[in-house]
């Protein structure tokens, strides 16, 4: 699922760039994060020396973070650096989707639904997945998780939808 290089070159042949390379993007990323952090901390009072306020540290750190962002952008623009590539889009979508699905279903539907659901969803992230194998494996894992977390460790995690009683 590697993102194709716009110029049509294959990865590794010429994975360096002078513009929008990894360092520049890293710098921009820091700048954005710093801006978000500073914005969120804006209403907070930095206080005085004897009463250091709640805003001092977040603001100071955000400013420093921004400074490092600028530094990385400059360094990135000066030389040639690696490109950012090879994002695994399929993997990202299914893995994160599986985690979110677990979060959404565990309380209303319980472990015995949320568990297999997230396992099957996440398995779609990998093109190598074999359907029969993963179904059998999921069934075993679900029973295993139930025994481990509910019976052995006795964690207060819902097992089945509450309408069914437990």
């Amino acid at each position: 699922m590697a993102v194709e290089d716009p110029a049509g070159r294959s990865a590794g042949e010429d994975a360096r760039s002078t513009f929008l390379n990894r360092e520049v993007l890293a710098g921009l990323f820091l700048l954005v994060s710093a801006a978000v952090g500073y914005y969120a901390a804006f209403p907070l009072d930095a206080g005085s020396m004897s009463g250091v306020g709640s805003g001092l540290l977040p603001k100071a750190v955000a400013i420093l973070l921004g400074a490092f962002g600028v530094y990385l952008v400059i360094v990135g623009l000066i030389g040639t650096h690696e490109r950012v590539e090879g994002f695994s889009l399929r993997g990202t979508i299914f893995v994160l989707g599986a985690i979110m699905a677990f979060a959404a279903t565990v309380r209303p539907l319980g472990l015995l639904v949320a568990g297999p659901l997230s396992m099957l969803l996440s398995s779609m992230a990998d093109p190598d997945t074999r359907p029969m194998e993963i179904i059998v494996f999921t069934a075993c894992m679900t029973v295993g998780c139930y025994l481990l977390f509910k019976v052995v460790l006795n964690l207060p995690i819902p097992v089945l939808p509450p309408v069914l009683g437990y």
Binding site: V95, A98, M119
Partner: peptide, 8 residues
Amino acid sequence: RLMFPAII
């Protein structure tokens, strides 16, 4: 392919 769903 089996390991990562289990980890998740």
